[in-house]
């Protein structure tokens, strides 16, 4: 056990060093966002503010609030709808397998790996055609469509854990497809829905490519607005850092309170589950 006396401090040293690397950006974000602009000099960026100044939060909140709301209007329906589709597909693909269902599942799954650039040009043409270009419903539609592969995967893996015997005995009792879904699968799916919803919420909130190509000015979700903040002529770093924190807050809060489910989603999303 003498070996442990040497190794344990080394382990801690490594963990602490890498933790500092991971926390450094957060420290700088928080510290900078609390400084007044005249204190945000390049040479003093690591120093704590001499007095707390929340004016960057006020400024960035004023600028980002409408986009923050846009993101909420986008994320809530898109998350719920894509989760529902995922549950329906996952149920069929795990408990009502048919010849070719695994191939079909693989074909659906491919959709989550494609670079979205490869569908972006037709998508914009399509959204213009149906009058959904530059609208939040247009973005909702996109996230529901391209969210299906991951939600289907998660629910399929989740439902695979529900014993087939339960389904079989329900069938013997005369329950059909819908009743089994409604009375057996859905009540057992609460964890599944939480995991999927957290995953989709985080992904859609953080998404940028669709947001920046489908929407302009007042329809833009938060991440585009944040990016625009840095595109302005004079870079007010304190406002930008406050804005970045505001934009990150919802997903950070979800992680802090429901991190366990977030990690579950991450593992479920790595295909093998």
């Amino acid at each position: 056990m003498t070996a442990r006396r040497v190794t344990v401090p080394i382990f801690y040293l490594l963990l602490i060093a890498l933790s500092l690397f991971h926390l450094m950006p957060i420290y700088v974000m928080v510290v900078t966002s609390l400084k007044p602009l005249d204190q945000v000099t390049l040479s003093e960026m690591w120093k704590l503010p001499t007095q707390l100044d929340f004016s960057s939060y006020v400024t960035s909140f004023e600028k980002l609030a409408p986009n923050f709301l846009n993101s909420i209007y986008l994320v809530v329906p898109a998350t719920l709808l894509s989760a529902l589709f995922g549950a329906m597909n996952g149920y069929v693909l795990s408990k009502w397998k048919f010849k070719g269902s695994d191939t079909l599942f693989t074909l659906i799954l491919f959709g989550m790996f494609i670079p979205y650039q490869s569908i972006l040009i037709p998508m914009i043409q399509f959204l213009r055609e149906v009058q959904l270009y530059n609208t939040i419903p247009g973005l909702i539609f996109i996230h529901v469509v391209y969210g299906q592969p991951i939600t289907t995967l998660m629910f399929r893996n989740f439902y695979a854990g529900i014993p087939d015997e339960m389904i079989e005995s329900a069938k013997i009792d005369g329950a059909g497809f819908l009743r089994i879904f409604q009375h057996i699968m859905l009540p057992l799916s609460i964890t599944g829905f939480v995991v999927v919803a957290i995953w989709q919420f985080t992904n859609i909130w953080n998404e940028f490519l669709f947001a920046v190509t489908i929407t302009t000015s007042d329809q833009q979700p938060i991440m585009v607005a944040l990016q625009n903040l840095s595109g302005s002529q004079i870079v007010q770093w304190n406002v930008q850092m406050a804005g970045a924190l505001l934009a990150a807050l919802p997903t950070l809060l979800v992680y802090i309170f429901l991190g366990k489910y977030f990690v579950k989603g991450l593992l479920a999303g790595s295909v093998k589950g």
Binding site: H22, T202, Q240, A248
Partner: peptide
């Protein structure tokens, strides 16, 4: 500490690391 950055957007990461 090691997991939380995954909950952030690449845009946030980009803005902070740019600085």
């Amino acid at each position: 500490i090691f997991f939380f950055p995954m909950a952030l957007s690449f845009v946030v990461t980009g803005v902070v690391w740019q600085w």
